[in-house]
Design a protein around this nucleic acid. Structure first.
Length: 473
RNA sequence: GCGUCGGUGGCAGAGUGGUCAAUUGCAACUGACUGUAAAUCAGUCGCCCUUCGGGCUACGUAGGUUCGAAUCCUACCCGGCGCA
């Protein structure tokens, strides 16, 4: 993986750049579509690509439980498995420590409005009143499967091992996404834990890479080029568990280095993924995750500690109060090394995207476009609409006037109207969620693309103002 | 015509003397959703008053019994089924 910055904002930390992976180029800032279980819900990869998505993010916890990371590995990695030819990422399962732990069964989410009375009241978590599916143990987290109740202990090492099996281009360190309702003492403990886990994640990542390199070198007798080709030709996949995946043999780039495959390759070109085995951990980049809640000192400390480690990039995690988000991101990005990419985890409302970019974020992922879509809320340039509202029953206009997505603008007149989409939702038709997700994904990915372009064109501020003044009615 | 069963809020369908403006589901209306436990969840859903709460009108229609009726009785109207 290689990252280079093309242009920076004059005021602020924002930048436009290019991130090259073994499976294609990501123009940043970029919006990453969430495909937790190796599928962007309700969409096939062609629809995802057509919506403008450059990267898809899967989830370690979910794929480990189902179908199992070994199966994904056998399939040739998450991209091959799900038929997504572009770059992929996997989250470490750190978010599930929160969503299935402190937040389980409660009205706490990734973003809390500070007006919420329960916010900032430190809760005592006795497990009797709210059973958790995730409990933090001595050196990892015990998960009780939400699928069948089975117990699984995930350590940082385990998370990295799973992620290597899943074979994404960018993977994340195992962290603890803390609840904003935890008190300062807990936040400190959790942060130290996340830092220890970061180091262990990194060590395991390096260990796995060198282990495979050793196997490679032994197998090849330290030869290069030619020998590799021979080896590659002589072995077909699946013969032995110890055999190296083919692309590893072909390329064998080190983590953090640029694969020759990537240079000049189109993001989704047919050559991006030639064989089932060509997706390996050799090309994986590991991102460390900064936590620290809403405390400036903790955020800054975390940024310093995590950036002192040899990560390829960084994630910014945590459950925020909406009001705290921009300052937290800024504190962190002022410290993180400029030359490495930063991913703001789980963030994705339009106003948040502007905020993130302005404060130096290169990558975003968020479930909102697809989840809101499936639940009947659609993005428009004039704000979100709930398509099942009465007023849209006979509205035969497009979801969003002027939108270029498949749903809104099939060549000329024919396209799906608000009335039709509303009808699909009322009828509980599957197509409703699909069309709504296509539209929302297109809206968000293109918004981020437009933000990127505005940086390149030097008119970010104007674009931000003109967009938000319409959007935030 | 006789017999029989039944008529409950937009629909389906509970309730069968007081705790019933009436369980529940659907529909309808509104809202929520930020590294997906989510094609999910929540609220409203007879009318009026300002929330607590109070008032009014309601369980086919009209009477009646009772302190009190959606619930019991009588007549009528309507529907299903059976027999003529």
């Amino acid at each position: 993986m290689q990252f280079r910055i093309e242009k920076k904002l004059k005021n602020g930390l924002g930048r436009a750049g290019v991130l090259e992976t073994a499976h294609g180029v990501i123009k940043t800032p970029a919006f990453v579509a969430v495909g937790t279980k190796a599928t962007v819900k309700s969409l096939n990869p062609e629809q995802v690509r057509e919506a403008g998505v450059q990267v898809v993010l899967g989830n370690t916890y979910h794929l480990y439980l189902q179908p199992g990371d070994e199966i994904v590995k056998k399939a040739g990695g998450i991209g091959k498995f799900m038929n997504w030819e572009g770059p992929t990422m996997t989250d470490s399962g750190g978010f599930q420590v929160f969503s299935l732990g402190a937040a389980y069964g409660k009205d706490i989410s990734k973003i809390t409005k500070i007006t919420d009375p329960s916010f900032l009241i430190p809760e005592r978590f006795d497990d009797s009143d709210a059973p958790r599916l995730a409990k933090i143990g001595a050196d990892g987290v015990s998960f009780k499967s939400h699928l069948d109740g089975s117990i699984h202990y995930i350590t940082p090492e385990k998370s990295i091992q799973i992620q290597h099996n899943l074979g994404a281009d960018i993977i994340f360190a195992f962290d603890e996404c803390t609840s904003p309702t935890e008190d300062l003492k807990y936040q400190k403990e959790a942060l130290e834990r996340t830092h220890r886990w970061a180091e262990r994640s990194l060590n395991e990542h390096k260990r796995l890479i060198s282990e495979r390199q050793n196997i490679l070198e032994r197998t090849l007798g330290r030869s290069d080029g030619d020998g590799q080709r021979k080896f590659s030709a002589e072995n077909s996949r699946g013969e032995s568990e110890n055999i190296l995946p083919e692309a590893a043999v072909k390329e064998a780039p080190l983590a953090g280095s640029l694969s020759p495959l990537a240079s000049g390759a189109l993001p989704l070109g047919p050559s991006a993924c030639e064989t089932p085995g060509d997706r390996t951990s050799f090309t994986a980049a590991l991102f460390g995750i900064v936590q620290g809640g809403r405390e400036k000192e903790l955020r800054q400390e975390s940024a310093r500690v995590i950036s002192s480690m040899d990560f390829d990039g960084f994630g910014i995690g945590g459950s925020f109060a909406k009001e705290d988000m921009s300052s937290a991101v800024k504190w962190v990005n002022e410290i993180l090394p400029e030359e490495k990419p930063r991913h703001l985890l789980g963030i994705g409302e339009p106003e948040d995207l502007f905020m993130g970019v302005e404060n130096g974020v290169d990558l975003f992922d968020c479930v909102l476009p697809t989840r809101l879509g499936r639940n009947g809320t659609l993005y428009t340039k004039n704000g979100k609409i709930i398509i099942t509202n009465k007023i849209f029953r006979e509205d035969f206009g497009p979801l969003d006037e002027g939108c270029g997505c498949y749903v809104c603008s099939v060549p000329e007149a024919p396209r799906y109207s608000r009335a039709y989409i509303a009808h699909l939702f009322r009828g509980k038709e599957m197509l409703a969620g699909t069309l709504a997700s296509i539209h929302n994904l297109y809206f968000i990915t293109h918004l981020v693309d437009d933000i990127r372009q505005s940086i390149l064109d030097g008119n970010f501020s104007e674009f931000k103002r003109s967009f938000l003044e319409k959007y935030l009615i």
